[in-house]
Design a protein around this nucleic acid. Structure first.
Lengths: 369, 369
DNA sequence: CGCAGCTCAGAGAGCGCTTTCCGGCGCGCA
DNA sequence: TGCGCGCCGGAAAGCGCTCTCTGAGCTGCG
C-alpha cells in the first residue's frame, strides 16, 4: 500500500487518563435503572414501567411525578433487558445478499460505491427514524453466512428484514420465509416465493426508453443488458425486446455487462465494433450508460446526434454524465421506504398477507436522447 | 409524485396463512435455550455456557457432547440475554452526524448518494465482519437527537461508535467523550477534543495537487473550496494556499461550493467569469470537480489543454468524469477500517490512550491534469 | 495411609425489564 | 348504610444468560 500511516498520540502513552476513566467506570457500572426511578418517585417499578411505556390506567398525578423522577435520574431504559422480556429488538436489518465474489475485495468496494446502495439506505432510514426503530446493516455472501444470519435473526437480533438480493438464485428469501422471519424485498425475488416485495415495472420502463429512441427517429437500436440472472436486468431486457417487437423490430444487437461503468464501456465498444451503424442504445442502468458514453466519445460518435443513449435508474450518475443522461426514473428511495413500511406493518401483524407493490417508471429526458 | 404504486396480493387478502403462520408462532415462542441444550447433553446450563463461550477447564468429552447437543437442538445464543449480563452489545454504531438541513429532504438523498458514505461503510464492515460484530447505522441531525443518541448508547445500544461528523461545530464528539463512550472519528474533530481519530494529511494532498498543476506549467491557478467550516475542506484550502505561497504565488482566485457536483459547476462558472485567463484549478473534492468539468466544457475550454483540473478523493466520480480526473487519493476504506480497529481496541481496553492515525495522500494521475 | 491442593461441574444469584395476578380503595346502586 | 364492581398500584415471577461460589473427586506428597 502506498500510504504509510503514522501513529501519534494526543498525550503521553502508557499513562492513565485521570478523571474521565474513573468516572467512566463508575458511570458504566451504575446507570439509573427502573428501580432507582421508582425509589425517587416513591412508587413501584411496575408503575414506572407503565408510565414510561405509556400504558394508561395510571393516575395523572403519578404520571407527572414519575416523569419528573425520570428526568431527575436521567433514566434511559435498558434495551437488552426490555428485548429479553418483550422479544422485540426494536431493530430492523437491512440485508444485502450478494454472491461471494466480493469476498475477494477486502472493502466490498463495488457494492457500496454503487449509488443504488445509498439510495436504499436513505429510503429505509426515512421511515425508521420517525418511529425510533434502529437499523442494522448486514452483508452476506456465502451460503453458511446466510444460515448464520437466519439463526441470529430468529434469536431476536432484529424484528424484521429489508432484503436486497443481488444474488441470482439466492436461498435467503426462502430461508427467511421458512424461519418465519418478517421480511420484505426491494426488487422481486429471483424465483417466486411467498414473500412481500416492492418493485418497479421494469418492462414498462424499458418500453418508455424504446418509445423515446424510436420517436427520435432511431432506426438501428442496440441494447446493453445487465447480468443475465438478475431479475431487474431480465425484466428490462424483456421489456426492451417486447417493445421493439411491437414496433416491428424482430431482433436487436445486444451485449451484456454487469451493471458497472467499466463493463458498460466494454460492452459499448463491442457493440460498436460489430454494428458501426448503430444510432441508438438502451442501457440497462445508468452506470453502464455512463461507460457507454465514454466508449462512444472515444469512437468519435456524438451523443445524441450520431447515437442516442437512454439509461435506467436516474441515479446520480445520470446527471453527472456528459451529456446528462435521458433515463428511466427508478424511485428507489420511495420504494425502499415503502418496503420498510410494509415490513413494519408485517412485524405488527405477522398474519398479514404477502403483498407486492409495483411502482410505475417515468422517463426523465435530458440530453443524451 | 408521478409514480402511482399499485398494490396487489399474491393470494387472497384477509385470509390466514395456514401452515407457516402457526409454525411461526410456535417457533418464535419456543426457541431452544441453554436449558434445553443442557438437558439434551445431560449437563448443567453453566457447562453449556462455558463450552459455547470457549472457556477452557472443560473436559474434552463433555465439550464434544455439548457441541453435539447444540447442533441437535439448533441452539443460537440469545443476544439480549447475553448483553443483559455481560453489558456488551456486540454491536458498533456508525454515526453520521450532519446538520439539520437534511431534515427537509425526506430521503436524505444528498448524504447517501455521495460515494463517501458507501466507502466508509465498506471499510467499517470489512473489519467488523470477520470478528462477528454487528453494525448499526445512525443518522443524527438535530441537537436533541444527539443527546438521545448518547443516552441510547450509554445504556448499551452499542459498544462503541465510529463517528462521521459532517457538521462543523458538532457537539457530538464532546458528548461522547463526556459520557465515556468509546468512539473514534473518521476525519479530525472540528475543534480539538480528547477523541481518537483517523485522518488524511489533507494539506499534503493539496500540496501534491499544486505541484502537479505548476509542474504542468500552469500560471494562473484557481481554487474551488469546500464548505468553510468543514475540517477536511479547511485543511485542503490551507494546504493549497501554503503550497502556492511557497512557490511564490501570494494569492489565488477562489470560489467555494458545498462538496456537491452542482455547487462545483456553479463555482467554476463564477471563477471563469471573474478570471477568464485561468489555466488550472484545484477542486477540493471530486464531485465538485466533476461539476467544474461540465462548466469548463460549456465554456468551451478544453481540459487539460486550456485548463488543467485536479480533484480530491479519488472517488468513483473521478474515474467516471470526462476526462477522467487527476486527483488526490483519499484511502477512505482503509481509514474507516483503521478507525474501526482502533475502536475495537478501545472497547477492549478503555484505558487506551487517545490516538490519531494520519494517512499520507498520493496523487493519481489521469487525464485532467 | 492421610491430607493439602488442584481441576472441573453444578447450584444459584442476579442483570433490568415487563406483565400477570391480587388486593385495596372508591363509587354506584339497592 | 351495605354490597359488588371497577380501577389502579404493588408484589413477584420470570425472560435467557453469565459467572461466582461451592463442593466433589482426584493427584501427589509427607
Amino acid at each position: 500500500m502506498a500510504e504509510s500511516p503514522q501513529t501519534g498520540n494526543l498525550s503521553r502513552p502508557g499513562e492513565r487518563v485521570p478523571g474521565s476513566a474513573g468516572e467512566r467506570g463508575a458511570a458504566r457500572s451504575r446507570l439509573p435503572t427502573l428501580e432507582d426511578v421508582a425509589r425517587v418517585a416513591g412508587v413501584s417499578r411496575a408503575t414506572v414501567s407503565r408510565v414510561v411505556n405509556g400504558v394508561r390506567n395510571v393516575d395523572p398525578d403519578l404520571h407527572t411525578t414519575v416523569w419528573a423522577a425520570v428526568d431527575a435520574t436521567g433514566y434511559v431504559p435498558n434495551r437488552a433487558a426490555r428485548s429479553l422480556v418483550t422479544r422485540r429488538a426494536g431493530t430492523v436489518a437491512l440485508v444485502v445478499s450478494d454472491s461471494e465474489e466480493h469476498d475477494d475485495d477486502p472493502f466490498l468496494g463495488r457494492l457500496f460505491t454503487d449509488p443504488f446502495f445509498g439510495r436504499v439506505v436513505g429510503g429505509v432510514l426515512s421511515v425508521l427514524r420517525p418511529v425510533g426503530v434502529q437499523l442494522g446493516l448486514h452483508l452476506v455472501g456465502s451460503p453458511p453466512a446466510r444460515v448464520r444470519l437466519v439463526g441470529d435473526l430468529r434469536q431476536g437480533q432484529a424484528d424484521g428484514v429489508v432484503l436486497l438480493s443481488l444474488h441470482p438464485d439466492d436461498a435467503l428469501p426462502g430461508l427467511l420465509v421458512e424461519a418465519g422471519i418478517a421480511a420484505v424485498m426491494v426488487g422481486r425475488p429471483a424465483r417466486p416465493a411467498p414473500i412481500s416485495y416492492v418493485d418497479l415495472a421494469n418492462e414498462a420502463g424499458a418500453a418508455l426508453a424504446v418509445e423515446r429512441l424510436l420517436a427520435r427517429g432511431c432506426q438501428r437500436v442496440g441494447l446493453i443488458a445487465g447480468p443475465e440472472h438478475v431479475p431487474a436486468s431480465q425484466d428490462r431486457v424483456a421489456g426492451f425486446r417486447q417493445a421493439m417487437a411491437r414496433r416491428g423490430y424482430a431482433w436487436s444487437p445486444s451485449e451484456a455487462g454487469n451493471f458497472t461503468r467499466e463493463s458498460g464501456e466494454a460492452a459499448m465498444r463491442r457493440l460498436l465494433a460489430a454494428h458501426p451503424d448503430l444510432d441508438g442504445v438502451f442501457v440497462a442502468n445508468d452506470l453502464m450508460a455512463q461507460g457507454a458514453l465514454v466508449a462512444l466519445h472515444e469512437a468519435g460518435r456524438r451523443v445524441p446526434d450520431d447515437v442516442a443513449v437512454v439509461g435506467f435508474d436516474d441515479s446520480s450518475a445520470a446527471q453527472a454524465a456528459q451529456p446528462p443522461l435521458t433515463t428511466v426514473r427508478h424511485p428507489l428511495e420511495v420504494m425502499a421506504a415503502e418496503a420498510t413500511r410494509l415490513l413494519l406493518a408485517r412485524i405488527e401483524d405477522p398474519q398479514l398477507r404477502v403483498a407486492s407493490v409495483i411502482h410505475d417508471p417515468v422517463l426523465v429526458v435530458r440530453r443524451s436522447a
